[in-house]
Write a protein that binds this DNA or RNA. Structure first.
Lengths: 255, 255
DNA sequence: CTTATCTGCGTATAGCATAAACAGAGTATG
DNA sequence: CATACTCTGTTTATGCTATACGCAGATAAG
């Protein structure tokens, strides 16, 4: 489990909220949490998450590896700090009064954050993440978007999760579409595949495959005829439509 | 990028579909792909994904590390094989005629697969994954569930993605809820947090926090008053409601 | 001034994935 | 049948990575 401070908070939480006081004694520090996290994010953005090693971060800052450990207790802690820093949400956002548009705007903000740093998708989300400043900010904003919806608190939180997961999935899909260009299966390989992926065995999927190019993800996706934006919007619209139905059921009010 | 066979297929794909012929010369093999994958899955199920090292898998089979490389070209390839093997979908499933119930059943099947091997959630999903047998089977089944819905092919694929991501998110949440029991922040830490997470800064979230216990995930979630099942169902119902609305718009037919 | 604490560095350790080479087992070919 | 070829499993080695430990020096507290 993550290291904790004397007060029992996970260290990453305390650091992220600025609660971790710099020591008063000893020589002046050559580094800071902010500088270390920023350097790590820069490496991740340029070369991907795998390139973020303690050695690489230290070197980019002109220090040796072990000096980083004066600031973070482990690489995991650094990753947690990177995660929240990367997913920055603006402090002040003016949302539309209409909850539907507000939710769409909120989803867009979360989406842009993920797109700016897609490597974040590969980091685990656990109990510590939710206590971090940008997560808290995003949650508050999402709840603000839904303030006029007749849902229970936990239902609203559930909606926040559904939408943010939807957004994450589509950013991941974008990444995979980009990567898929690199995989070009020659005709011979495609022929072999068609001998096992047959209409008899997969009667619904094979017609879909034949109508488009096969791409990505755990659950297969056809190349989007209307582009990925349309499919992202479709998913979001489904959720919002569902919410409108729910609103109507609970208030008798027609949206 | 993943290794490929002579025919240009990713090796993992060829192996998973049984296209990778065993060599005809040389001494009899002491291992097989199936045995290696099964041993790796057993370790992952018992101790988590981090415990799956080439050394550990080889040892559990009574061989030395490097002999595994006669069968898989890298650890990544082994992980890809594990991923698809773990997410097994039955060959024959009879779905309800009603597309709503069919989609719910499909979601349930995917959910149970994830729950049986939750470490799969930590594995990246990329272009190779979708060509693997169980992914193909899951996609065909999902499309079968929606055969009566008036959607374009790529829209159906989009729905498959939305639902499977929803399912994955909730299995992950379940895991995080289990892990959250381990984080007990003492009163002192909670007090410190409440000094930064204030009603002035986060007017919508703080009341939610005060009405329940704070838990998990990137976007914060309150402890579910009605349990996690209710929230899982809520999310799925939203998507299905949205689909009903879409069906009505396209057919003029009232569901 | 003395003591305590902190900083950054150098050295070391353990774990892990994988390359390369070797000896022997089994098949294909002439 | 003998020879050549291919494959198997093992051993040894390499490089990378995270992190422990100890040292010398810098700075603050008492």
């Amino acid at each position: 489990m993550a290291e904790t401070t004397e007060t029992g908070l996970p260290r990453a939480v305390a650091i992220a909220w600025g609660m971790h006081e710099a020591p008063q004694r000893g020589p002046n520090r050559g580094l800071s949490h902010e500088r270390i996290v920023a350097a790590a994010i820069e490496i991740a953005d340029a070369e991907g998450l795998a390139a973020v090693t303690m050695q690489a971060v230290a070197k980019s800052l002109g220090f040796t590896t072990m000096s980083l450990y004066r600031y973070v207790s482990s690489k995991d802690e650094l990753l947690q700090l990177m995660q929240d820093t990367a997913l920055s949400v603006p402090e002040k956002v003016r949302l539309p009064a209409d909850w539907q548009e507000a939710l769409r705007m909120w989803a867009g903000i979360v989406r842009e954050a993920y797109r700016a740093h897609p490597w974040v998708l590969a980091l685990p989300r656990g109990p510590v993440s939710i206590l971090m400043p940008n997560s808290v900010r995003a949650a508050d904003l999402g709840l603000s978007a839904m303030k006029d919806l007749p849902l229970e608190d936990d239902e609203k939180i559930g909606v926040i999760l559904v939408i943010s997961q939807h957004v994450a999935a589509w950013v991941e899909l974008e990444q995979n579409l980009a990567a898929a260009d690199i995989i070009a299966i020659p005709a011979e390989g495609v022929q072999l595949l068609s001998e096992v992926i047959t209409p008899e065995r997969f009667p619904h999927l094979v017609p879909v495959m034949e109508s488009g190019n096969y791409i990505v993800d755990e659950v297969p996706v056809v190349e989007m005829n209307n582009g990925i934006e349309a499919e992202y919007d479709l998913g979001l619209d489904l959720i919002i439509s569902g919410l409108e139905v729910l609103e109507q059921q609970r208030t008798g009010k027609q949206t």
